[in-house]
């Protein structure tokens, strides 16, 4: 049984249809990437999974149970952590507080334990440790991105949804980030990764899907996707691979 399964999902923004019958699955322990051009519906897919959007058609199954009507708060408590596009750091809270609140989906964990876990996150992202007590809005875009991932990890998710985590980061930081994503995955977290940086994403993924204007067009292993002419032309910058 897949950990996550989407069955014929359609999602709308008012009258605008963003997803048209999307079916995909993510197995336990897998790292799956979702590729696609701007406006293809990648973020919408993640929002539908995390409950920010209620699909107009189809089902989202998590551990075999339908969750698409549960609402984001309940879905977070089931162990799905969504690090959304745009980072969405709480501007008026400190870096440490932002991280601590990442654990809001877990009930009854003592504050002390959470503080300890926050310290562990600073070990994963040492660049933001010295801003521990700075307000969220004072961080640079890249630092906010790291903070967003650190906060997402505090949920101890079974499934981590990452929406373009490399966006706006310097190449070296991107390398580090993907190394971190590999580590997170090694620790048994299942990941659904949305990326524009297809080369990077495919280098860490087990499988990938390509989304085009709301419809899934290609599915396969990184090797298959890298070998697909259409995919190469559209997302991998020509024939250099």
């Amino acid at each position: 049984m897949a950990l996550l399964e989407l069955r014929g999902i359609s999602s709308h923004y008012g009258n605008v249809q963003a997803l048209k019958g999307v079916s995909l699955h993510v197995n336990e322990g897998e790292l799956v990437t979702l590729l696609g051009a701007n406006g293809a519906g990648k973020s919408t897919t993640l929002k539908t999974i995390s409950g920010l959007i209620v699909p107009t058609e189809g089902e989202v199954l998590f551990e075999g149970k339908p969750i698409h009507r549960a609402g984001p708060e309940a879905i977070a408590r089931l162990g799905i952590s969504h690090v959304p596009e745009g980072r969405r750091i709480f501007p008026g809270l400190t870096v440490r507080e932002n991280i601590l609140l990442g654990a809001s989906n877990r009930k009854g964990v003592p504050r002390k334990q959470l503080e300890k876990e926050a310290d562990e996150k600073f070990e994963i992202f040492p660049e933001i440790r010295r801003f521990e007590n700075a307000l969220g809005w004072t961080l640079s875009g890249g630092q906010q991105q790291m903070l967003a991932v650190a906060r997402g990890l505090m949920a101890e998710p079974k499934l981590l949804l990452l929406d373009e985590p490399s966006l706006g980061l310097a190449p070296l930081i991107v390398q580090n980030l993907f190394a971190t994503i590999r580590d997170i995955r090694k620790r048994g977290v299942t990941i659904l990764l949305v990326e524009q940086n297809a080369n990077m994403a495919l280098s860490v993924a087990d499988r990938g899907y390509v989304l085009e204007t709301g419809t899934l067009t290609v599915e396969g292993t990184p090797k298959e996707l890298l070998g697909n002419e259409q995919v190469r032309a559209a997302y991998l910058g020509g024939h250099h691979g």
């Binding site: 995390s50 409950g51 920010l52 609402g71 984001p72 708060e73 977070a76 408590r77 952590s81 969504h82 959304p84 969405r88 709480f90 609140l101 990442g102 809001s104 989906n105 877990r106 906060r151 949920a155």
Partner: peptide, 9 residues
């Protein structure tokens, strides 16, 4: 919305 995503009621 972000608060919701973190599981804050």
């Amino acid at each position: 919305d972000m608060a919701r995503l973190l599981g804050i009621p």
